[in-house]
Write a protein that binds this DNA or RNA. Structure first.
Lengths: 254, 254
DNA sequence: GCGGGTTTACTGGTCTGACCAGTAAACGGA
DNA sequence: TCCGTTTACTGGTCAGACCAGTAAACCCGC
């Protein structure tokens, strides 16, 4: 018998559902305004407390934004990766998720982003990437490894942007942010910071060259190899072994 | 001047922040209980309405769960991919995100999941994958394309599970769910459903063989090729072109 | 007629205090 | 010792109130 389990939905949940489906089917779209809380409480015939709880969850899930005092009411948000960021770092921080899994995922995303960037980049993309590389180099010249993590993040972000795939770009940004913490720790524990960082900048230059030449496989290989080498010393043999497939999948073309 | 923009945090936000950081630094962990709302309102010295709004956003972001009548109070949740699912389908459904981007991402994830599965699968993994393939074949025998999408999803999910990378697994599950809609539409519009579906099942058999033989590259190639072919007819040449790199990166080994 | 300060009518944020249906643990009788 | 009953409490909802803050309407001097 195809009975479905009953699910009692509370008043505020029903409001959330109604508003979400109004957005899903196009009745409401980003930028539109919801009525104020007092109007909503009349529309749904619930108390204000209930309306507010509904608005709170819509706000927490990035669906609407409200500002006190605004007579125009809450506004349907434009997309922001905030929620994705939050949920993915939640996942990555799980005890059951190992460093290796995070690094595998990173290699995967950065590798493809780079491959796509080399294929699809516009001149403007290339300019931005080059500019970010220059900033990175200048920062190393001036302050050594001090601001390396910030600048290399921006450099990589520019490459992801050039990939033309927003899914890869945004997931890459998120994972990049998470691994940035690892990176800072990595640099902190290593005496030979400067050598590592300079090596990374050199790889960056080769990378930009390959992207500029639209050499997708070459670019991806340099990128993946660079990231891999950055963490490799820190990992034990088993971990290294688990990472190899992601590096070898993009053989370095010399 | 390094001034930081002031950010007034409201009462309920402060509560959310405090509870979240208590979890982050280990004072609270999954399974632990929060005091009831009345106790919390005394602890934070705010009204119950404020406590409830805080609990609502914690609940919406999957941090806590509460059940009416439970004298033990709200409980800190175990991780669930619900939020990740929600935020990623939010992203994938954006108008600015094209079908091709979603499919690229899917090829990327399924390809690596398969590669890893072939390397890392346990015997139990292999058994489960095989069982899912048998179910898929039986379903086609009995009902043709009718339940294809459900069964093939479960088959792929089993492979992702065997990959041993939870990031790839969960993201793959999410994207799988999203593309399942595309799949249903695809099958609906095609007169030759049965042929497509049978072909897919054949690929599945080759896939299981390769995973069983721990042939990572072979498995990945079959998987990616299969998914690609499934949608290829539906796409225009430019879209096909954007997908090729993801297919060619795993050359078919005959 | 037109800018710029002032008023005003609202907004969202918070509080108090109340009632209800439902739960789980303590209680009590067999 | 077991099982039904009570009970004290839970979360969900409501009504009504106050406040700080906003934006648009207003009005005044020019």
């Amino acid at each position: 018998m195809p009975f479905t389990p009953v699910q009692k939905v509370s008043a505020y949940e029903s409001i959330v559902l109604q508003i979400e489906s109004a957005i899903a089917n196009g009745d409401l779209k980003a930028g539109d305004r919801l009525p104020g809380e007092r109007k909503l409480m009349a529309d749904f015939s619930v108390s204000r407390a209930t309306v507010r709880e509904a608005l709170r969850v819509l706000q927490a899930t990035g669906v609407v934004e409200s500002r006190p005092g605004d007579p125009r009411g809450p506004v349907i948000s434009h997309y922001s990766p905030r929620l994705l960021e939050k949920s993915m770092s939640q996942l990555a921080r799980l005890d059951s998720v190992s460093r290796v899994e995070v690094l595998q995922f990173r290699l995967l995303l950065e590798g493809s982003a780079t491959r796509l960037a080399a294929r699809n980049r516009s001149e403007a993309d290339l300019d931005l990437i080059t500019a970010r590389l220059r900033e990175l180099e200048a920062s190393i010249q001036a302050d050594g490894a001090k601001f390396f993590s910030e600048h290399v993040s921006r450099f990589h972000a520019a490459i992801r942007r050039a990939s033309g795939n927003q899914l890869i770009e945004i997931c890459g940004n998120v994972i990049g942010g998470i691994t940035a913490e690892l990176m800072v720790r990595r640099l902190h524990t290593d005496a030979d910071q400067l050598a590592i960082v300079q090596r990374s900048a050199l790889d960056g230059a080769r990378l930009v060259e390959a992207i500029s030449a639209r050499d997708a496989e070459g670019a991806a290989a340099v990128q993946v190899e660079n990231i891999y080498r950055f963490y490799a010393d820190d990992l034990d043999p088993a971990e290294v072994d688990a990472l190899r497939p992601f590096v070898d999948a993009s053989p370095v073309v010399e």
